[in-house]
Amino acid sequence: MTQFLSAADLRHAIELKAAHPDATLIAGGTDVMVGLNFGHRQESRLIDISRVAELREWSRDGDTVRLGAGVPYTRIVEELGGELPGLARAARTIGSAQIRNRATVGGNLGTASPAGDALPPLLAARASVEVASSRGTRAVPAREFFTGPGRSVLETDEIVTSVRLPVAAGPQQFAKLGPRNAMVIAVASVALTLDPEHRRVGCSAGSAAPTPVAAAEAEEFAAAELDWTGGELPAPVLARFGGLVAGATSPIDDLRGSAGYRRHAVAVLARRTLTWAWQELWRS
């Protein structure tokens, strides 16, 4: 039997998690319930945090958005398309309308699947993840949050409370490849951000390594090679950029795609997202 504990507010949730570090947090339940129903996971204890109001809010503080871990994707699509276009684009690709109504960024972070669609935009935007426990709070850069498939730096008594993301300083793209035109787990995905003022590029790939990965070398290459005064995007730069992003991945062969196809797809999506973001930058 599974014990089901319902947290009334954030403090209560933190207390419950401290008292039961083995317990699994459940908010939207779109991942946890599938695991339970398929018998792939047994849980002795679930802590329901879907009623914790503090987690279901977002706010803007200057150039930063603080996004509560429990804000469902539907709201991100509807409310944050202006501030966080990359994340909102990724949110649009997640599951079905029903899933988007329930699923949360906190869930993607907690599950730590390399295929979590919301994760590459967090890495590309250099977001930081806020976690809390009875010992206090800390912020972890999204790029340092994951340690392996299903693994993160989260301690057993910690809860992801929010994500801090910079308000988009330029175009942001997200593209995903799957074998169906909706409701599909990514075979590969790429998130990309441009910050023309600081001449910075952010780029991250999903489903192509044990964790979502930032393509640091590709970011630096593009930042240096792009003609930030408004020039064309030379084909060799695009090709090299795609290659570098693919080079940052370490995909495996599995049911959903071979390593080679994933690497190829990451390169293609990297070139495309950079192209589209660049076009958007100079259209405006």
Binding site: R89, R92, T93, Q173, F174, A175, K176, L177, G178, N181, A182, V184, A186, L269, R272, W276
Partner: peptide, 12 residues
């Protein structure tokens, strides 16, 4: 192709 996954454009 890809639907809302935003993986392509008509010209491709």
């Amino acid at each position: 192709p890809g639907g809302t996954s935003n993986s392509t454009r008509a010209d491709r």
